[in-house]
């Protein structure tokens, strides 16, 4: 059945696919996961702070973002932000924004909503006595959060955070609609140029599968390792 397939196309494209495409994809994934975690942690702390109006703001943000299709948000950012920037700066023309930056900001903001729910669950899963013990020793709220609550919440939730990052890794392929040169985007372009889309997409699927599968296996192993003994 593969007799009329031409796998040479893939082999020729390998350096470009990986050195350019996969590097872009991984860079976007890791940076978005990093910023998403930071912003998500802040959102989770806001949500649990009980200090009006912080929980309301964070809650609204999370619910709003989670009710929107990611693809739509990507479009929005890409097409609207230049106009918004134009208005703010007062320039005569829409200000083009670096596509990678656009993608990074979009994914970070979007993932923050998901990461914040994970961190919130992680924080709430800790026994209440841990916080009380911190306060009883004279630690302040920021010290209790930074030294006691967040390290434990983060460690407890690490497998879930990483699993969400694997989902993010797959979702970054959506930037292909902005015709950015991520792994999928490059494969699509080469496939189209050479009329070998089937081979290319099969290969892309295989690579995404292998990386995601290997990563989730690694997460499972890590889960056993990092579990805190109580």
């Amino acid at each position: 059945m593969f007799s009329n397939f031409d796998f040479q196309v893939i082999i020729d494209a390998l350096p470009y696919l990986f050195l350019e495409g996969m590097v872009f994809t991984l860079k976007l994934t890791l940076l978005a996961a990093l910023f998403g975690t930071i912003l998500g942690t802040i959102l989770a702390l806001m949500r649990l702070s009980g200090v009006w109006p912080l929980p309301q703001i964070a809650g609204t943000y999370v619910n709003f973002v989670r009710s929107l299709p990611l693809l739509l948000v990507i479009f929005w950012f890409f097409f609207l932000v230049p106009f918004i920037a134009q208005k703010i700066v007062g320039s005569p023309r829409p200000i083009p924004i670096d596509p990678f930056l656009t993608a990074l900001i979009t994914f970070s903001l979007f993932e923050a909503a998901y990461f914040s729910e994970i961190m919130r669950a992680g924080i709430q899963s800790l026994p209440k006595g841990q916080v009380a013990a911190g306060y009883a020793l004279g630690l302040s709220y920021p010290q209790v959060m930074r030294r006691i609550v967040l390290p434990q919440a983060f460690r407890n939730m690490l497998p879930v955070l990483l699993t969400q990052t694997i989902v993010l890794f797959q979702d970054t392929s959506l930037v292909y609609v902005l015709s950015l040169n991520d792994f999928l985007g490059i494969a699509g372009k080469i496939g189209q140029r050479d009329g070998r889309l089937t081979e290319m997409y099969l290969f892309v699927a295989l690579v995404y599968f292998l990386i995601s599968f290997a990563a989730s296996q690694a997460v499972r192993r890590l889960q056993v390792h990092t579990a805190i003994i109580r």
């Binding site: 013990a133 004279g138 030294r147």
Partner: peptide
């Protein structure tokens, strides 16, 4: 200053509440 006041009173809990990490 609650943190300061609390630091002057030791407290021992039913469930120990040592920091497991």
């Amino acid at each position: 200053d609650l943190p300061k006041l609390r630091s002057r009173i030791g407290m021992v809990f039913q469930n120990f509440e040592l920091f497991p990490h």
